[in-house]
C-alpha cells in the first residue's frame, strides 16, 4: 500500500505519458503525430527547464539558447560533416551541457532578476553571433540535403523515427526529473530554492549544485534541438533562438506547477492544447496571443502554484502522491 502510494506520482505520470505517445501510433495519422510531437517536445523542454526553474528556483528566461546551440552544432555535423543523427544528437547535448557548465560558473552567482536578465543577454548574444558565423550559414542558416533522410528509410519514415526518438527522450527527461526530485541532490536544490544562504549554512555546496542542475536542464534541450531541426530540414538563427519560445516553456512549467514532476507535463499538454484550440477557433484565431496572455495573467495572479500545486494544497492526500 505505502509503496504504491509512494510511487503513485511516478506511475500516474508515466501512464499519462504512455497514452500520449501511443495515440498517434494507434491512429497512424500524420496529423495526430505532428500534434503529439509538439506536445512531447514541450513536455520534454518544460521538464528540463523545471529542474532549474522549479527545483532550484532560478528563472532562466533564455533557456532556448541550449535548444538553439545544440540544434546548430548537431545540424552542422549532419549537413556539413555527414555524421549520423545519433552522433549529432550526442554532440548537441554535450555542447549544450558544456555551455551550461561554463555559464553556470559565471552567471549563477547572480540572483533573482539579474540572473533572468543575464540569460536573456546570453541568448541574444548567441543568436547575434550565429547570425554572423559563416560556418553555420550566417543569417540564412543551413539546410539538410534531402538524401540524408534516405539513411533513415526516407523522409516519411524519418518523421516517425523522430517521433519515437522524441518519445524516448521525453521518458528519459521524466525519469531524470523524478530521480532528481527524490534524490539527495534534488533536496539540495530545493533547499537552495527556499533559502540559498540558509542552505549553504547547512552544508549545501550551492555553487556546485546549482551548476549541475543547470547542466542537467540544458543537455536534453540541446539534443532536442538537433532532433527538431533534423525533422525540420533547415535551421535559421531566428527560430533556433526565439526568446518567446523560452518564455512559453516557463509558462508551461508555471501552468502545471513548478517544482513537481507531473506539473510540466500537464502544463505543456494544457498549453499546447489551448494554443491549438485558439489557433483554429474562428473567434480567437486573430487574438490567440492576447487570450493566452489573459490566461497567463490569471494563473500568475490567482493560481501561482499551478495545477499540481493547487491540487496539493487543496487535497492533502495528494501531497505525497503528486510530486
Amino acid at each position: 500500500m505505502s509503496t504504491v502510494r509512494k510511487y503513485l506520482g511516478l506511475i500516474v505520470t508515466i501512464g499519462v505519458l504512455l497514452m500520449l505517445v501511443a495515440w498517434p501510433a494507434i491512429t497512424g495519422k500524420d496529423i495526430t503525430r505532428e500534434t503529439t510531437f509538439t506536445i512531447l517536445l514541450s513536455v520534454a523542454l518544460a521538464s528540463s527547464l523545471n529542474i532549474l526553474l522549479g527545483y532550484t528556483g532560478y528563472v532562466s528566461f533564455g533557456h532556448v539558447v541550449f535548444f538553439g546551440l545544440g540544434g546548430y552544432v548537431g545540424f552542422y555535423l549532419m549537413s556539413a560533416q555527414g555524421m549520423s543523427l545519433w552522433i549529432s544528437m550526442l554532440a548537441g547535448g554535450v555542447s549544450a551541457g558544456v555551455l551550461a557548465f561554463l555559464l553556470g560558473k559565471a552567471i549563477l552567482r547572480l540572483r533573482g532578476g539579474y540572473f533572468a536578465l543575464a540569460t536573456i543577454g546570453i541568448n541574444e548574444a548567441m543568436r547575434a553571433f550565429i547570425n554572423n558565423f559563416e560556418p553555420f550559414g550566417g543569417p540564412t542558416g543551413m539546410t539538410l540535403n534531402f538524401s540524408v533522410y534516405r539513411d533513415y528509410g526516407g523522409a516519411g519514415q524519418a518523421l516517425w523515427l523522430s517521433y519515437y526518438v522524441l518519445a524516448a527522450l521525453t521518458f528519459i527527461v521524466l525519469i531524470v526529473s523524478y530521480l532528481v526530485r527524490t534524490s539527495k541532490f534534488g533536496l539540495g536544490l530545493l533547499a537552495i530554492r527556499e533559502d540559498e544562504d540558509a542552505a549553504e549554512v547547512m552544508g549545501v555546496n550551492a555553487p556546485n549544485v546549482k551548476t549541475w542542475a543547470y547542466v542537467l536542464s540544458a543537455i536534453i534541450p540541446g539534443m532536442l534541438g538537433v532532433l527538431f531541426f533534423f525533422k525540420n530540414g533547415s535551421i535559421e538563427p531566428a527560430p533556433a533562438f526565439r526568446l518567446h519560445f523560452s518564455i512559453e516553456m516557463i509558462v508551461m512549467v508555471m501552468l502545471g506547477g513548478q517544482g513537481t514532476v507531473l506539473g510540466p507535463i500537464l502544463g505543456a499538454y494544457g498549453y499546447q492544447s489551448l494554443r491549438g484550440f485558439l489557433l483554429t477557433s474562428p473567434i480567437f484565431k486573430d487574438i490567440q496571443l492576447a487570450v493566452a496572455g489573459v490566461l497567463l495573467l490569471v494563473i500568475v495572479l490567482f493560481v501561482p502554484a499551478g495545477v499540481v500545486g493547487w491540487l496539493r494544497q487543496r487535497v492533502p492526500v495528494l501531497r505525497r502522491a503528486l510530486q
Binding site: 527556499e194 533559502d195 542552505a199 547547512m202 552544508g203
Partner: peptide, 21 residues
Amino acid sequence: VRPLNELSVRENVIVGACFGR
C-alpha cells in the same frame, strides 16, 4: 529563523543531516 518554507519539517531536518558533517 530561516525555515525552508515549502518543505516539510522533516525534510528541513533531513537537509541538515544530509549535508552536515
